[in-house]
């Protein structure tokens, strides 16, 4: 089964994006497939609204891979693929071993995914830029980690960067920075909260599915 993987730093808004994007694509009865690092699979039936309350929000961490089946019309038939939410990535090396295992699982999934949606908090990038001054770099919101991930992704046809939180005022500067830094066509502005920009993401996923 093809898989589109939503990855990025922690607190970039991956889980909310997944939920909202699934809603946008018309998923109603949300059956989540949860893959834990110890290799167990679990099915959870949690409605999108409940999931939003449960999993998304400050200080929440997604553990393991949470996948939703999404269906995209293509020709006469329907292509289905997994939309997978992942554990947020962090840069520091001294993490607890099970967090590490979670991230390693994300990396493994990344190698096998057809679509990679790299979620970046554009508002945080914008804020960090404003703090760093004119020529500064937005440390903390856009670091080595994202840089490497983007460099890695440029070789992959299914990679796009989602500049998230476009509903916040600082995000505009962040988006401009990201567009300048990377291939413009690979940066899509979205707002997971308001559900804007999903049409382009859908087109991209549809193309790769």
């Amino acid at each position: 089964m093809k898989r589109s993987l939503v990855m990025g730093r922690s607190n970039a808004g991956k889980t909310l994006f997944c939920i909202q994007f699934a809603r946008y694509l018309g998923v109603r009865d949300a059956e989540w497939l949860v893959e834990r690092t110890d290799g167990t699979l679990e099915r959870q039936r949690i409605s999108l609204d409940t999931a939003r309350q449960l999993w998304s929000g400050d200080g929440q961490r997604t553990r393991g891979l949470h996948s939703l089946m999404i269906e995209l019309p293509r020709g006469k038939g329907v292509r289905s693929l997994w939309l997978t939410d992942t554990t947020g990535l962090r840069e520091d090396i001294d993490e607890s071993p099970d967090l590490r295992a979670d991230m390693a699982q994300t990396l493994r999934a990344m190698l096998e995914s057809q679509v990679i949606l790299h979620v970046v908090d554009a508002s945080a990038v914008g804020r960090a830029l404003a703090e760093a001054g004119r020529d500064g770099s937005p440390t903390g919101a856009w670091g080595d980690l994202d840089e490497q991930l983007a460099a890695f992704g440029m070789a992959h046809a299914g990679y796009v960067l989602l500049a998230n939180k476009m509903d916040l005022p600082e995000a505009r500067a962040g988006l401009a920075y990201l567009r300048k830094r990377l291939d413009k066509r690979r940066v899509l502005p979205v707002s997971a909260r308001c559900g804007t920009g999903f049409r382009e993401v859908k087109q991209h996923v549809w193309r790769m599915a």
Partner: peptide
């Protein structure tokens, strides 16, 4: 993590 990503990339 960034080193791992760099190695992968």
């Amino acid at each position: 993590l960034s080193e791992a990503l760099e190695a992968l990339g």
